[in-house]
Computed example of a mutant assay.
Amino acid sequence: MPKKVSISPSQWVIIIGLLAAASACYLLVQPYVNAIVMAFIISLLISPIHAWLEGKMPTHKNLTAFLSCTILTFIIVLPLTLVFMSIVNQGAVFSQNVYKWGTHGGIESVINHPLVIKVVSLINSYLPFDKINPQNIAQKLGQLAASLGTNLVGVSAKVLGDATNFLVNFFLMLFVLFFLLRDHDKIIYALRHVVPLSRSQEDKLLDEIEQVSKSAVMGSFLTALAQGVAGGLGMWAAGFPGLFWGTMLAFASFIPVVGTALIWIPASIYLYFSGDTGWAIFLVIWSIAVVGSIDNLLRPFLMQGNSGMNTLLMFFSLLGGLQFFGLIGLIYGPIIFAVTMVMFKIYEETFQNFLDDQDNS
């Protein structure tokens, strides 16, 4: 049974001062919190490699941490650079093809398709307001296609800015990662020392954070990667730029509810109206049977480390994290839920006698 601690007024001053100072420090590092959190999570993921290097060079902590960061750079930055260059090239070619298709009768051929005419006629027969005019839609789409080149310049500039921002954050993360790897034992010891929990409670909390961090990364990002690869192969077989659309499918997989359907449904419709009915059917079947099954089977398997969280809690942790924090929320959401559940377990153990008395009263 832990000893009761009485806190004097002077100690309350120290605690309040510490909280105020910690809040001020958080405001200073708040713009870089994502880089720090990602460094912590990546340190967990590459810990086996770093542990192996430390086993080979136990007295050279600076060198082993530097080598681990260098290996990570070669694993992530170089492949991403090559992929990014290919995506930009394929995206430019695709935009040129869309421009040619839209300005050389492609839109008119879709608008004048018998199925489109029947659907528009059916909709117009039930609309209580102004009727849909296919020619007006064709004109708007033509203007959009004509302005695609101008829009592409703006998008390219934004992408370039985002890529530059990514590199800055990546090297900041590497800087933090170096110290996390080098001083891992000291950091864990300091955290254990200042957190007023028993050793078993600290172990539960740290183990759950580590487990959930790994499974969140594996579950979200590896699933997106697998769906991007599978979807890209299907798009390539159907005649689209595989790498570009595979990347778009990977990003779309993060969007709740609709996911990759945001990409492959319009692509299938385009193939159908272009006369490639067989490839349209193939893409629908491939996307549902292969790409969709990856999300239904692989994600739950990779995220099974989230102990105590059922499918409903996992869904809301991902959905809420994505909405509140953005893409990084796919990691933050499960971690917040998991830590909350561990704290509930600690609360239940700590106040077990009181809770039992309440149940029996």
Rank of each mutant, 00 (worst) to 15 (best):
F179E: 09
F179S: 10
F179I: 05
F179V: 07
L180M: 15
L180I: 13
L180N: 09
L181D: 06
L181M: 11
R182C: 11
R182D: 14
D183M: 10
D183V: 01
D183I: 01
D183H: 12
D183Q: 08
H184L: 00
H184I: 04
H184W: 11
H184A: 10
D185N: 10
D185W: 02
K186P: 01
K186Y: 09
K186F: 10
K186E: 07
K186M: 08
K186T: 06
I187F: 12
I187T: 00
I187R: 01
I188L: 14
I188G: 03
I188D: 07
I188R: 07
Y189P: 00
Y189D: 01
Y189Q: 08
Y189W: 08
L191V: 11
R192A: 06
R192V: 02
H193F: 14
V194K: 04
V195C: 05
V195M: 02
V195I: 11
P196V: 04
P196D: 10
P196S: 02
L197A: 12
L197H: 06
S198G: 13
S198I: 01
S198N: 04
S198F: 00
R199Y: 12
R199M: 09
R199N: 14
S200N: 09
S200M: 00
S200R: 03
S200T: 06
Q201P: 15
Q201K: 04
Q201M: 03
Q201T: 01
E202Y: 09
D203N: 12
D203T: 09
D203C: 06
K204T: 04
K204V: 01
L205R: 02
L206V: 08
L206Q: 10
D207V: 05
E208G: 02
E208Q: 13
E208Y: 02
I209E: 05
I209A: 14
E210V: 08
Q211K: 15
V212M: 05
V212R: 06
